[in-house]
Simulated scan of single mutants.
Amino acid sequence: MLYDAALLQAYVNGLFDYARNEAQTTPAAKPSYEEMASGLKSAVTLQVRASQTEQIKRVLDIVKRRHM
């Protein structure tokens, strides 16, 4: 579930660049590891990250496998 939230947030972050006319098209490729890590950071509060460290580590492992 956290992976899905991070993926959605990464896509939303990509749309902001599109909406500001920084890119001519929306990105069609899957988000990079850095974009996914940023999306996870944006989607989850610091309180959740502090209390769910093991789950966050598992999600980052999944992100590494799928997006690197």
Results as ranks from 00 to 15, higher is better:
Lys57Asp: 14
Ser32Met: 06
Arg66Thr: 13
Ser42Gly: 07
Ala10Tyr: 00
Gly39Val: 08
Asn13His: 07
Arg49Phe: 04
Gln52Gly: 06
Pro27Val: 09
Lys30Asp: 14
Ile62Arg: 12
Ser51Tyr: 03
Ala6Gly: 13
Ser51Leu: 04
Val12Leu: 07
Ala6Lys: 03
Tyr18Ser: 15
Gln47Ile: 03
Glu54Lys: 10
Ala28Gly: 09
Ala6Asn: 08
Val48Met: 07
Glu22Val: 00
Met68Trp: 02
Arg20Gln: 15
Ile56Ser: 01
Tyr18Asn: 15
Thr25Cys: 02
Tyr3Leu: 14
Tyr3Trp: 06
Asn13Cys: 07
Val59Pro: 06
Thr26Cys: 11
Lys64Asp: 11
Ala10Asp: 11
Gln52Ala: 07
Thr25Lys: 08
Lys41Gln: 12
Gly39Pro: 11
Asp17Thr: 08
Tyr33Asn: 09
Ala19Gln: 14
Asn13Gly: 11
Arg66Tyr: 02
Tyr33Glu: 11
Asp4Val: 06
Met1His: 12
Ala6Leu: 07
Glu35Thr: 09
Asp4Cys: 05
Thr25Trp: 01
Gln9Lys: 13
Ser51Arg: 06
Tyr18Gln: 14
Arg65Thr: 02
Ser42Thr: 15
Arg65Gln: 12
Thr25His: 06
Thr45Met: 04
Tyr3Asn: 04
Ala37Asn: 08
Ala5Gly: 06
Tyr11Phe: 06
Arg58Phe: 00
Asn21Pro: 01
Gly14Tyr: 01
Ser32Glu: 08
Met68His: 07
Thr53Trp: 00
Asp17Cys: 01
Leu7Gln: 04
Met36Cys: 10
Arg58Val: 03
Ser38Met: 10
Ala10Leu: 05
Pro27Ile: 05
Asn21Gln: 12
Ile56Pro: 01
Glu35Pro: 08
Glu34Met: 03
Ala10His: 05
Thr26Ile: 09
Glu35Met: 13
Ser42Cys: 04
Leu2Arg: 04
